[in-house]
Design a protein around this nucleic acid. Sequence first.
DNA 1: CTTACTTCCTAACGTGACGTGAGGTTCAAG
DNA 2: CTTGAACCTCACGTCACGTTAGGAAGTAAG
Lengths: 240, 240
Amino acid sequence: MKIWRVGEIAQLTGLTVRTLHHYDEIGLLHPAHTSEKGHRLYVEDDLQRLHHIILLKQLGFSLEEVKRLMTDPAFNPLHLLEHQLARINEHIQMQLDLRDRLNDIYSLMHRGQPVDPSRFMEVVQMINISRSKHFSREMAKNIQRNYTSMNSEQIREKNEEFRRLISGFRSEMEKGTPEHDPVVLDLARRWKSCLQDAAGDYDQLSRSAESYYRDHSDQALPFGMDGELYQFIRKAVLKI
Amino acid sequence: MKIWRVGEIAQLTGLTVRTLHHYDEIGLLHPAHTSEKGHRLYVEDDLQRLHHIILLKQLGFSLEEVKRLMTDPAFNPLHLLEHQLARINEHIQMQLDLRDRLNDIYSLMHRGQPVDPSRFMEVVQMINISRSKHFSREMAKNIQRNYTSMNSEQIREKNEEFRRLISGFRSEMEKGTPEHDPVVLDLARRWKSCLQDAAGDYDQLSRSAESYYRDHSDQALPFGMDGELYQFIRKAVLKI
DNA sequence: CTTACTTCCTAACGTGACGTGAGGTTCAAG
DNA sequence: CTTGAACCTCACGTCACGTTAGGAAGTAAG
């Protein structure tokens, strides 16, 4: 009957001694024997059990789940498998989506102007909005293409115009100016052409934007936009 | 100049108050002002910064990385992006592989005999070995097909035979019996036919197995197999 | 002004799966 | 008998917060 000490088990399995201590602590694997001086002594069965633990861990189960799987005979592995598959599929979807976004950002940054922090945040913001579920693939591509075609001076100018328009709308809205007022209509015309420049198709963009703002109506949005203000702008644009 | 309290910020951003406390603690976002009684008071700029933090977090960066990205102007976002892409790609690969294995296990269990724990571990073990890099896709499919075609009685029998053979080889090896001894040659013949049953093509299987045992030569393997014993068996089989 | 309710504060522990010491004991070899 | 390796038990650190606990401040109504 061969007996192993903790360091040998560690070598055989590729785990660390600390890990084996941990498994002992949480009751996942108590060695069969303990020497009178407290040294852990493992036997064949322990090693086998440990291999099973390692396999299950590699499948992504938590130590708690591994424990239940191995000790509770009534525990249903099939159910756990389904659960795990669902978890992992969802996870994979998120990771793939994330990768796409990172890739977009990377390629926009890479062939763009020198890396300055504020521009980086702009790109990140743009990608995150255009990649949200409210915008179609085509629209996202459009926006990105237009963005890349501009140099930093043009982008700065565009952002300024955007900011001006929004604060213009906001002050009129707070003054109570009606949407059909010439001042507001002028803002609306500039607004529409500004967005048309940026995204190509205003109507489609506005549908996407509306859905976006509906989803985020209670949140503060970039440039000081919010749901209420967007409604004001929308009505004004319809009056043109 | 609008000022927000911590609860309002939480609502606007969808974070919790505790999270904002945390960001304050670690110096990621100190609110612009603090009331004389210690209440946190945020201004527009803080909100903007917070939005940036949220975006970067969604891209999978740690709070530490976010902090560096936002405060250290010399910090290179491109480099970090590359790093992050590499990380995520690796991660995705692992997850996809894991999903495949889980799916294999699931379908084997699902259409198999009633779920008993020891059989579950067998399946897991089998899938994990056959899916390791040493085995070809085709070989893995072979092994799995053969496995599903057996009922639990046959599987038990097979495992027993396997165990008997291995312990037979081991005792001969430890006695110092040479590989060309008739007793060993008989074991070798049974060994070969046993594996041929299980995997179809013995030569291909043995190449895979050899590569597998080379990789795990210093580890204890299922059924009490190890690298040294495998070499003994291999030589014996060649003598047939 | 009191009461009651909400929001805010700090402080401290918990999560998961260990890593990383500190400080001391035991084992195996020379 | 002495060394050095391996072992032991605490116990704190990781990461991004969640979750009480206990109390102070702010706000609205009576």
